[in-house]
Design a protein around this nucleic acid. Sequence first.
DNA 1: TGCCAGGCCGGGT
DNA 2: ACCCGGCATGGC
Length: 225
Amino acid sequence: MTSSELRSYYKTLLNSLGPQHWWPGETPFEVMVGAVLTQNTAWTNVEKAIANLKAAGTLSAKAIDATDARTLARMIRPAGYFNVKAKRLKSFVRWYLDRYGGDVKRMKASSLSSLREELLGVKGIGPETADSILLYALDLPSFVVDAYTYRVLRRHGLVLEGATYDEIKEMLEGAFDETGAARVRLFNEFHALLVAVGKDWCKPTPRCETCPLREHLPRSGPETL
DNA sequence: TGCCAGGCCGGGT
DNA sequence: ACCCGGCATGGC
């Protein structure tokens, strides 16, 4: 029954908030870089870092590969954790160049599941970053789970406390029959909508009165986390 | 002013 | 297999 609930949530959110048109990076590579930079970081800070990379002509795999971590760290400073993220960007582009010649089309020639495994093998890329790259950069149907997703679903009693990333991901993916581009669009929009709810209503101290999902609250009332 | 933001790694139990 | 500290800036 959870599947029909999730479909119902999606319909409600889409009707009340509309399409979010999320993550409109200008190129797939820009989206991939953004996926790393936004780890535990507000997107507004990521935008500044990406703008710096662009201004320096360093928003390409080859350029990042050719830039030392110190210099890179200076450029991405606004994104926070800049020393860590500079190394992560470099380890990612190293893999991207070695494995796929820095070519998105070649990357998309691999299957979704093997691509995901490969990405998880890159140091600095965990499940959320991998799925963000797959979904938002490559248009592959891999649902992104994040802290907002967990909080919203948890408060509605749709996942158990302590549910793992993969459990939540599989529950969400299993709830929808769509295929192809429609599936990608749905995963893209639904995740963005869950984030919107998390940001504006389903916060650490929730404001459920005006939440688009208020009619979907479980009988026992929202958890307080 | 402190808390939080679209996580992940490495070392310790 | 979990748990936790560390990593850092900018906005409200």
